[in-house]
Nucleic acid binder design. Sequence first.
DNA 1: TGATGACGGTATCAAAAGATACATAACCAA
DNA 2: TTGGTTATGTATCTTTTGATACCGTCATCA
Lengths: 209, 209
Amino acid sequence: MIEDLKTFQTYLKFFPEPEFREELVKYGQVNSFKKGDIIVRDGQYVKFLPIVLKGAIRVYQQKEDREILLYYVRAEETCTMSLAAAYFNNKSSSHGVVTEPTEVLIFPADLIYQWQSKYPSWNKYVIHMFRRRYDELINSFEGIVFDHIPDRVWDYLKRAPLNTENHIHISHQQLAHELGTTRVVISRILKQFEKEKKIKLFRGYIELK
Amino acid sequence: MIEDLKTFQTYLKFFPEPEFREELVKYGQVNSFKKGDIIVRDGQYVKFLPIVLKGAIRVYQQKEDREILLYYVRAEETCTMSLAAAYFNNKSSSHGVVTEPTEVLIFPADLIYQWQSKYPSWNKYVIHMFRRRYDELINSFEGIVFDHIPDRVWDYLKRAPLNTENHIHISHQQLAHELGTTRVVISRILKQFEKEKKIKLFRGYIELK
DNA sequence: TGATGACGGTATCAAAAGATACATAACCAA
DNA sequence: TTGGTTATGTATCTTTTGATACCGTCATCA
């Protein structure tokens, strides 16, 4: 718990008001999740507001057989879809799934009504998050409209988290899924990159050069 | 001016607090614009917050030679990009252009800091607007990712404002622009629709059947 | 009335991406 | 080890979309 609080103190630099910090400690609860855990499901009411301390939550929408990636909630961030749903007492229209070991700070959703009147930093944080999510979506949007798939793949590889060996652990299938295309297309493109000596392909991972 | 106030009263049903309404009357200023007027420009600081009373503002981003449509600000709505920019005292990253005769209620941007502490309905409105813009973008996004252009054209025609004669006044060029493709592609698709008896083509407008 | 420019129709060609099919290799659990 | 599953490589074909070019029509205005 002390460990958690330390993490917590480090991360929540957005909220300077002392009373606010007290409230955060008082009402917040740190939960740990492992890869694959589901945080929210489409159709559920949202009663809690999450702020990620460590790790990542993948937020996406599902319609029929197709899936659309909205964003990843990473450290210091909150999930704007949850926030809006909680605010208006709507059911969630998105899924949230943990993609790596993750710690989340959880608050009863009702608190936000009080916070927004009492703590300016909260409003600032909320608007900042909405704005950022919006910009992220615009970026993906642009990518899809204007860039060819090879560019988008390359972009993905450059941004992807690397381990110390310059390895990206992802399968062609997953990559295709993230970019909204098919495995064959990705394999074709990656092979081309390999020919151009940009990467080296292995089973289960890609080495960036 | 009385006319304006009446319009104003009708539209601002979102804000029930009497003191808030007083403030709105006190600080708000009604401006009229005509088609083609520019409300915000990329790179400008945003000092005023607009709420549209009547008409529409087209908000888009421009990068190099390409353009990306974000949304139209219509009656009762505000421009979330302006709001966020004003809030953080950033330059606007978008353009806002009036597309039809439009009346806009304009407020000094500083007021929002006070409003968000004093008037819960304001926060509700803001979060609602952000959420809606986000959903709109997701929709366009889905359209582009999953639908073929003919579907998107058809979708556009169904949503477009009709006059009493079932006519949509738009040129192929404009339509292509809105959907992010080229005139030839649109002409080709529309011609096909005409063959299928879904529409009838005229110079400058399209008749829906 | 004649020049000009916006609008729309259509043909041809090329590029990008998806669909399908099949083969091979690595991994893993029984 | 063996058989099933997952990951990857690759060829072929089709569809969709974009690019380009050229033409006719309509509206407007000097």
